[in-house]
Design a protein around this nucleic acid. Structure first.
Lengths: 340, 340
DNA sequence: CTGAAAGCGCTTACAG
DNA sequence: CTGAAAGCGCTTACAG
């Protein structure tokens, strides 16, 4: 706004012949003001094109009306759709949304948390990927934080899906269709130490499913590429085949990975679902349009966004209440990629 | 931050035994301060966990350090990837990014522009879809605005691709491969009045290509679904086939549409590229992994983001300079969907 | 129902 | 190189 002569409440007050306080009352609408006064003030605001200075309001109120959303990679279809819903819900509730991306550099989550207080933010919705529990521990120095996704600690409000159970359900689904050697793209027991929470939780669920069915785990079937892009999904299949590993199904831990898997199998002349079954996770829009259409796990992303915002707003008004967890339901969507 | 006893510069000054001014000098780094003083101040800041209040700074400076990015639909793979790059570049240059979505409601672009001054924003990157020129006209009441995409007016800084030429090149490519009856998904001459600028510009380029080759336009081949989702692309093909229209190629104005087109053709037993050639626009990550892989138009989205930010920063420091246009190059990527 | 005063936490001239 | 004062534009008690 540099260089522009913005009108202030004082200007509006002068033009309308009232005090700045009255203008403030009209703008915020918290106090009753006589209708003819309101009208005069509004006319003056219109004439001067008055827009309240939110920095000043923020300084005074200690609130900016902005929340931040931090996601690992904004370019991922899943993240993009989630952001879309969060922006929509936030808009309905009067919040602006600031975005941050955390996957690019290792220290970005910590940096973000430490800067969060500075950045005019009333709250933060964070989908953690490498976040150490320790960082979340000193919450008293942070604005309200809601964690979303595969969250393992319990010190913060969080919105979850039961990924472990979903992943087990996928394993059951494949085993029921005859799969015995299920490759896993996105999970690798040997690398569990450095893996993301998402990877660990989904792998655990998968292993639950194997164990139930009495199938012995074969770590040669597990591969966890980074990052979880479509290209990486395709490369993972090439790698497995290169290793000479036989498999009759592939579980991919995101749809983006799964679409790469489908592509690589197709390129090698492996038929899906006749030779190999394939599943994804997330149900992004394109999954229904993959060839063949992809069996996957759908969660209600709108509900996800709503719950996150609700927790955040509740936390803003009750800083010391005990942390809460909300679980959003999921659903296995069966499509052609596992329809034998 | 409500409820938290945040340390202020005054507190830091008191603890370090200096004046607030000195603390400010240390924080901003604009003035030389004696090293031992710097050290004392930094120790005090660390002890008190001091973080500057950006509302106060913004009020004082008239700058917030935040820019806004407004895109029609954040869930679109193309928008998501563009946002990813903008956030990355903005971060490098010290800006936070606020996002807005404009497609949801008709008046959202106007609303956004009118609120822009209020929302603590130093500048706005806007990908307009229905924006009336009139709105951009009173730029003196807005923060710096850079328009991106298919922009037809010249009153504002803008980053463009030459979509019209790219679309003509696609038509040439198809015609060179024998196509004569090219269906268009995303452009419809009859509906040009209500279409988006993207649709109009790309359709114009397509018609250029037909005209060059002496091919007579057939409006029965044109269809412009809304919104431009994958589902809509599939539906458009069904609609064309339902109309009984024959075609030997399909030009889709985004990759998302094109992937829907591929799916619908496959479902109907139409082979690509043997029976029908298909092209997209944008080169999103998945296009290389479609079946068959998609011929499309690639533009450098990182360059797009960089140019937009550069124009915005230039405009912040020179409000009255004449508006500039930067054109980002594109490239036709030929893949299996047109490889006969 | 409306006014006059004070203050949110910074930074920018103005002095020293 | 550092201090004391003033002010950015709001809103919140405090009076009337």
């Amino acid at each position: 706004m540099a260089g522009m002569a913005r009108a202030t409440m004082k200007d509006v007050a002068a033009l309308a012949g009232v005090s700045p306080k009255t203008v403030s009352n009209v703008v915020t609408g918290t106090v009753f003001v006589r209708p003819e006064t309101v009208e005069r003030v509004q006319a003056a605001m219109a004439e001067l094109r008055f827009v309240p200075n939110l920095s000043a309001r923020g300084l005074r109120n200690g609130r900016s009306g902005t929340i931040a959303v931090a996601l690992p990679d904004l370019a991922t279809p899943f993240s993009a759709d989630l952001l879309h819903h969060i922006v929509e819900v936030a808009h309905e509730r009067g919040f602006a949304v600031q975005v941050e991306e955390t996957a690019a550099e290792p220290g970005r989550e910590e940096e973000l948390l430490s800067r969060a207080r500075a950045h005019l933010i009333d709250g933060l919705i964070l989908n953690p990927i490498r976040l150490e529990d320790s960082v979340v521990e000193h919450t008293e120095h942070l604005p309200p934080v809601v964690l979303i996704g595969e969250v393992e600690q319990q010190l913060t409000d969080r919105v979850l899906i039961d990924s472990r159970r979903a992943s087990r359900d996928i394993a059951r689904h494949l085993i029921a269709r005859g799969a015995r050697r299920i490759a896993v793209v996105g999970g690798d027991t040997e690398r569990a130490e450095v893996a993301t929470a998402t990877s660990r939780v989904r792998l655990a669920g998968h292993l639950d499913g194997l164990a139930e069915a009495g199938i012995v785990r074969d770590q040669a079937l597990e591969i966890d590429p980074f990052p979880w892009t479509t290209a990486a999904g395709a490369a993972a299949v090439d790698e497995l085949i290169g290793r000479g590993v036989r498999f009759d199904a592939v579980v991919a831990f995101t749809d983006s990975l799964a679409i790469g898997v489908l592509h690589a199998l197709h390129a090698r002349g492996v038929r899906v679902p006749e030779d190999v079954l394939v599943t994804g996770f997330d149900d992004v829009e394109l999954s229904a349009y993959a060839s063949p259409a992809l069996t996957t796990v759908r969660l209600d992303r709108r509900a996800f966004a709503e719950e996150a915002l609700r927790l955040l707003e509740d936390r803003m008004s009750a800083r010391t209440a005990p942390p809460r967890a909300v679980t959003v339901p999921y659903e296995i969507i069966v499509r052609a990629s596992t329809e034998v």
